[in-house]
Write a protein that binds this DNA or RNA. Sequence first.
DNA 1: TTGTCAAGACGATACGTCTCGCCTTCTTCT
DNA 2: AGAAGAAGGCGAGACGTATCGTCTTGACAA
Lengths: 202, 202
Amino acid sequence: MVNKTPAAKAPDATRRNERSRRAILDAALEIVGEVGFSKLTIEAIAARAGVGKQTIYRWWPSKAAVLFEACMPEGLDPLTVELPDTGDIEADLKTVLRGTVDELRNPKLEAPTRALSAETQNDPELGRQLTERILEPQLQAYVRRLRSAQEAGQIAADIDVRIAIELLVGPLFHRWHTRTLPLTHEYADTVAELALRGLSPR
Amino acid sequence: MVNKTPAAKAPDATRRNERSRRAILDAALEIVGEVGFSKLTIEAIAARAGVGKQTIYRWWPSKAAVLFEACMPEGLDPLTVELPDTGDIEADLKTVLRGTVDELRNPKLEAPTRALSAETQNDPELGRQLTERILEPQLQAYVRRLRSAQEAGQIAADIDVRIAIELLVGPLFHRWHTRTLPLTHEYADTVAELALRGLSPR
DNA sequence: TTGTCAAGACGATACGTCTCGCCTTCTTCT
DNA sequence: AGAAGAAGGCGAGACGTATCGTCTTGACAA
């Protein structure tokens, strides 16, 4: 048996229409920015993209999956994600965390990003894919940079770098999720300073 | 003008049926636990609660609002939320963070909690209410406990306690949101230790 | 008398499946 | 090589179902 469900014949990806694919992704991004995720419907995407509904259902399992692909950087090799390494771990982390703040505050990305973040709570499989294809490559870049800092003696050698990462980015995402206080560069700097103080050798 | 929309006449809360209210909240919790938030419908709640749909629409603006009220502790005075203070800030924080981990891992609460967390991303007004009535009272308890630690010289006096809190709970919620690594008591302890190391006086 | 209540009818909307020609691409036959 | 199918994605939209939020009815309680 080839397919999990014998009735489900997989579509032939080699015959796929790239123009339609792009039109769908662009339409989804436009609409979610205009009216929000709850009013983003498959029918509206199809209408704006000038596409049949079946063309969407054929290639994506949900509107969240469409939005996910629409947010994916296209030709970007995940392995190219790299953090700066000037030798000064504090300066480098501040640079990166400030960049994260800028991305989270980017008005063009906010609607789809929040929609996807929300959707991962109720759709663990989507969350798994998002983690694997977007989050994990970035975390691996952190891992490499923090190991480098450990070898330089700037971070205690016995610290689990995965936990170190969460100490750095957790507070930023928490503030973004809860919208309690403004997410600023100053905040990123303070978090970097305090976290590094906790991570440095005694 | 009394109402924002003249046509909207406010219902008379004094004549409200408490039995129906409880049946609705209980039904909502049951259903979201069984089939998830996306399949939680107003019609299903009304049917299971033995209630007319209008009785739900009359008192709540959305299914998320119903779930929110269903998750609210009933007779609990928010001011009574208090963190332990044994004088040992590290031990106390570990106790509290372990409790948070236990709550986040509680199978009965997981479905509604994730659903509400997701909904706050796309509904800022709901997020505001959830922050005000659930999150903020707990944060205030943290503020009091951390100020006490500052007075005892266990935490640097020049640190913004709001940021200190985010350093403590941010990593926990980040792991809960992303489901990357297991959320355990050991993790809570490590976060408390590392964060406190960053917060302690130099 | 007034207003909530349970029940459910109602039109609107979006769902996901399907059917229909149209068109492109690949295969086969002369 | 060129013509004639064969296969399958495509745009369009009809279809039945589900849920939406509003509205109506009659019972009941304050």
